[in-house]
Nucleic acid binder design. Sequence first.
DNA 1: CTTTTATGAATGAAGG
DNA 2: CCTTCATTCATAAAAG
Lengths: 214, 214
Amino acid sequence: MVNVVELQKQLQRWQQSGNNVNVDANGELMYVKVMTDEQLETLRKQIAVYATICDQLIEMHRTLSAQQDLAGVRLGNLYCDPLLTSGGHKITSRQRWTPTPVQLQILERIFDQGNGTPSKEKIKEITAELGQHGQISETNVYNWFQNRRARSKRKLQNVAPGNTESEVDTEVDSKDKKTKPEEFLSQHNITTSGGSEKLCFQNPQVYSDLQYLN
Amino acid sequence: MVNVVELQKQLQRWQQSGNNVNVDANGELMYVKVMTDEQLETLRKQIAVYATICDQLIEMHRTLSAQQDLAGVRLGNLYCDPLLTSGGHKITSRQRWTPTPVQLQILERIFDQGNGTPSKEKIKEITAELGQHGQISETNVYNWFQNRRARSKRKLQNVAPGNTESEVDTEVDSKDKKTKPEEFLSQHNITTSGGSEKLCFQNPQVYSDLQYLN
DNA sequence: CTTTTATGAATGAAGG
DNA sequence: CCTTCATTCATAAAAG
């Protein structure tokens, strides 16, 4: 196991050690530090490992944060004001559509008309109408109806059941929120391309003293 | 600007350069490589930068993927409730497959390769590969590709108007998923603790030739 | 300000 | 393929 966080320390130790020698390289005298081939190879390997880690992390980040990152890009119109920037507050606040009271009213009315099938055509019409009362997109309308139907349906299920069975138990079950994310790292040990050594992050050190974007 | 990906190359160049000299260090002759203090300091700085990047990425990853990641990691995937005998209380956990970060990454990569043909054979292969990173079935893979294609296709809707207007309309493009995440990195230039240099990733190199966990 | 709730959005799966 | 549904995630809004 090559511990990554040791890389710097090791180099530093070497740098501060007494490996200084006088060298007569090109005919003149130089004062340099010396590294054996073995030391050099070790260093090279470790750097390679570092590079691999960075690549992996970048890729993971890209995949995982696709939506969030995109959020900043995709909704070009969010009134995401130029953030206060004073306290290092959140930079990319994902903005989601919120229907205005008028829009909501219209939507509810349409929904109550029973036309359970908001076809593409309908969606366009509705969107156009609501657009006069605030910014909106067809996707918003589509989602609204989807959610509206699903939730009204679920509501009925909760009230209706002559629940003789121990069936419906989880209505509010999925409310756990504060799970800690430490574990993920333990799954990402990797192997250096040039060797068979494994490496891992030393959590306490890696997670501490972090001061980014500042 | 110190480009991080140059670190390895630079070291390699140095390693292969003709800096070999005979040194009389301790009274015996050694054949070693030589680094000037300047070179060494440069290397040290770059490694420090690397470390900082890793830390930042880890932290960002942790922050951004807190919930999602955990979902995948903490309970692998659908976890069969073996506790069903203990009391009649069944734990209705998740019944649907959720790709782990690694799986998702692989899937995205395959998808991006343009081979829009998830043939039977391919599916089997992919499933086998992904199976090493978490439970998965061929159906999962099939569905994933179906959904992925269908939904990425849907981003081609309101493109009709040659909308040169400064109209605040672009909410509809929220369906695009393939926007490049380059930007996120540009926001995370950092400063080395010992200096004032900035650094950034050279995207093409960093994002390419990634072959991890293999 | 912190916690809780309501709800817009994302996505795996099913049906045709 | 496309549409639709069920479930889950994330966040604006409300409550404390």
